[in-house]
Simulated scan of single mutants.
Amino acid sequence: MSQKLKLGVPKGSLQDATIKLFAKSGWKIGLHHRNYFPDINDEDINCSMCRAQEMSAYVASGTLDVGLTGKDWILENDSDVVEVSSLVYSKVSNRPARWVLAVAGDSPYKRPEDLAGKKIATELVNVTKNYFKSQNIPVDVDFSWGATEAKVVEGLCDGIVEVTETGTTIKAHGLRIIAEVMQTNTRLIANKKAWEDPWKRKKIEKINLLLQGALKAEKMVGLKMNLPKDNLDSAMKILPSLNSPTVAELSDNKWISVEIMVDETVVRDLIPELKELGAEGIIEYPLNKVI
């Protein structure tokens, strides 16, 4: 019987972003209604869905060989896993999320120390306890099953530790952030025994390589153009690229074809400069993977 790699995909807020990232990397994950075992176009992989909060525990136990979850939940569960790589992506923005300490906007609390002896609600109980313990601040930490922001407003607690990317939801509930507890982002994690297995490790490394390539490509685009040969040196001074641009001769020896990969944020300034240098037929195109 051929080997199978047991892959865990996080269910919940990261689900769609994860499936999209895998699709760009070459693996199509097909969901079924109320089914936790989606199809995947790779006969060497069995795919399972589970909550990000539980993923590291399943990987540590060997129920799953590899999975994606946040650094926050690895620490929360104190899971003994191999952290293969960091993958910065989310449903909102490709930047790390933050677990923050927040209080009511009209409360007198300005610093974590002001909450000594008070009640804190959070889903991230162990990390929160360790945070306050490290600062020698005695607090009562209660587990929150959800709607954590509302508990401050309703007077059920004095402060909360909640995850946010932009802070918009925190502010929308009339809360004020007074400290950052930790930053977190998605990690590709592996079971230790699976990581020691040569076949599974090679498969995991292949997945990681292509996931990283797809993430890198999200921030970049390709540019291709025709350029007067005499202006190449001037163009080279303004062309940012991973390596030297690809330059090819054209049938008209006064012109050359130039192709580069650049950060998409510089394109709006770069194209007008290239036009000033006589570039023609400038094409911008998306990239699927950059390895």
Rank of each mutant, 00 (worst) to 15 (best):
S2I: 09
K6M: 14
K6W: 08
K6G: 01
G8F: 04
K11N: 07
L14F: 13
Q15W: 06
W27I: 04
I29T: 07
G30N: 09
P38S: 10
D39P: 07
N41F: 06
D42G: 04
C47M: 15
C50Y: 05
E54T: 12
S56E: 09
G62D: 01
G67L: 10
G67D: 08
G70A: 09
G70V: 04
W73A: 02
L75I: 10
N77V: 06
S79K: 00
V81Q: 01
Y89D: 06
S90C: 08
K91F: 12
N94Y: 05
R95E: 12
W99Y: 13
V100P: 04
L101N: 00
A102I: 03
V103N: 01
G105S: 15
S107R: 05
P108R: 05
P108E: 07
P108K: 05
Y109I: 10
P112I: 06
A116I: 00
G117C: 14
T122G: 01
E123A: 14
V125I: 12
V125D: 04
T128E: 00
K129F: 08
Y131Q: 01
K133Q: 11
Q135A: 12
Q135T: 07
N136A: 15
D140P: 02
D140L: 07
G146I: 05
G146V: 04
A147M: 15
V152P: 01
V153G: 05
E165R: 08
T168N: 14
K171Y: 07
A172G: 12
E180D: 15
M182T: 13
T184L: 11
N185I: 05
A190H: 04
N191G: 06
A194R: 00
D197N: 15
I204A: 03
L209F: 11
L210P: 03
K216Y: 08
K219T: 10
V221K: 06
V221W: 03
V221S: 01
M225F: 00
N226C: 07
L227R: 02
K229V: 10
K229M: 08
A235L: 08
K237G: 08
I238R: 06
S241Y: 07
N243P: 03
N243G: 14
S244I: 09
A248M: 12
A248F: 08
E249V: 11
N253F: 15
W255M: 14
I256W: 05
V258D: 04
E264H: 13
I271V: 15
G278F: 03
I282F: 12
P286T: 13
N288L: 15
